[in-house]
Design a protein around this nucleic acid. Structure first.
Lengths: 247, 247
DNA sequence: AGCCTTATGCGCGGTAACGTACAGACGTAG
DNA sequence: CTACGTCTGTACGTTACCGCGCATAAGGCT
């Protein structure tokens, strides 16, 4: 009986040609990621890169005052630890597990090595990084010009796209931390969405009932990020389909 | 009598070892960048990369509503056209000249080629890209949590660091567009700073009289970006000093 | 079952920034 | 040197979000 876990659940890993995959595979270690766990601290030396499968990780900056704001999220479409191959080795922002689940981790040294082969993995990582930048830019613009409710819709949709189920396990308090707003602001916005019949929630669980409704209520930012992601990573998604064979 | 312009005025170009520089140098074309000029449109194919010397370029996203927000600025410490070597070829955001001046431009194809040599230029470009991401993250957080006045201070300082003079040529209207706020908001904040004796301005000109004052009045975001820039690009700055010899 | 932690709901006053409208002031062009 | 366009100052009501405080309820734990 095979494990339900498989590196191909991560799109980047799934997109690798067999030869590259075989080379990395022995070094991929399945690790559980717990809610709230900090994968790396601001300024701390990165040891591993994480390729999420079912987990979702949030990249964000925490201010001196304790206030915080997410700049981007990472799910099974990407990897946590960009700085390893970008050459900075660390960043001033932190990576925190936003949805518990699993990831495959790889020693930083090996990721760098693989990157420097200048093969498909390098191309994938660079294109993924660009997608990440789009997310960051869009987050900044959205923060500036859109309402909390619109931002909540955007966040729910982006998270849902990465989540294995249609129910998210997260408190309003945590969502508030991601968006950098008050908890009460989320309570109110979520209340509106529930009244509209788009979502239903209870103590740390949010079920999405009507995706289309959320898409209508959110701002353009969701679509921009989504479109750019699929443009940049389209071949990644294609190959992911093929990965079932490998399994 | 030599031209006052020199590729080494751009830190990335200045940091190249002579061999690499000689290879690129014949293809570097000095171009004037006019205020408001759009170097590339959202989604448009990038043809050239631009290495600013005296010009400053703003990367920002323009919403459907016409509202906009800057995600990062690029001066002589960097390059405009990251997407060329990241593999996406284009981005949903645009690049607009924020301070008129000059830049050296290089055909996209040649930049890609140089990047793929996997030499120092690649390392520089990647580290610069990481610095850019820090700027984006910080902009998002700053937008969320800090006042218009603090953001104005941050913006002035970052711009000043890239400007050749201590007087900036820009209207309040344009600054408002960068920060994504109302023009009146800038008028008010700038008025405060002038009353405090930190700046003096008149119709499109802003002279900075007291840097230290601005630094005291701004938020932590300026320091974070600045520090990360110098950490990631320290050897770049070092070599820039040496470039005087080449001149 | 009952308790106790933790998540959510709600109200109130405060405020920063918005949208709009208009007046003055600068400086270039004619 | 006059006129006009552009940039800046000011003032209004409006709004979204904040900060605080507390009430209520849900659900895990013993």
């Amino acid at each position: 009986m095979p494990s339900p876990h498989n590196p191909s659940q991560n799109h980047l890993l799934a997109a690798l040609p067999p030869a590259d995959f075989e080379r990395l595979s022995p070094h991929l270690e399945l690790v559980p990621l717990l809610l709230g766990q900090m994968l790396y601290e601001p300024g701390g030396q990165l040891r591993h890169a994480y390729f999420p499968t079912t987990a979702i990780v949030s990249l964000h900056y925490v201010m001196e005052s304790g206030a915080s704001a997410e700049s981007a999220g990472v799910g099974n479409e990407g990897v946590v630890g960009i700085a390893l191959f970008m050459g900075g080795d660390t960043t001033p922002s932190s990576a925190v597990v936003q949805t518990a689940g699993h990831a495959y981790r790889l020693e930083g040294r090996l990721l760098k090595q693989e990157f420097n082969r200048a093969g498909l993995m390098q191309r994938l990582l660079l294109r993924y990084t660009q997608a990440l930048m789009t997310q960051m830019t869009q987050t900044a613009a959205c923060t500036r010009h859109h309402s909390v409710e619109q931002q909540l819709c955007r966040w729910l949709l982006l998270t849902l796209d990465r989540a294995p189920a249609r129910e998210l396990v997260i408190t309003q308090e945590l969502i508030a931390g991601m968006l950098g707003v008050r908890r009460e602001g989320i309570t109110q916005a979520a209340g509106n969405l529930q009244d509209a019949g788009f979502i239903r929630y209870r103590r740390g669980h949010i079920a999405v009932l009507d995706r289309t409704g959320l898409e209508k209520r959110t701002c353009e930012c969701y679509a921009v990020v989504k479109k750019e992601m699929s443009r940049l990573l389209s071949d990644v998604q294609y190959r992911q389909g093929a990965s079932a064979i490998v399994t």
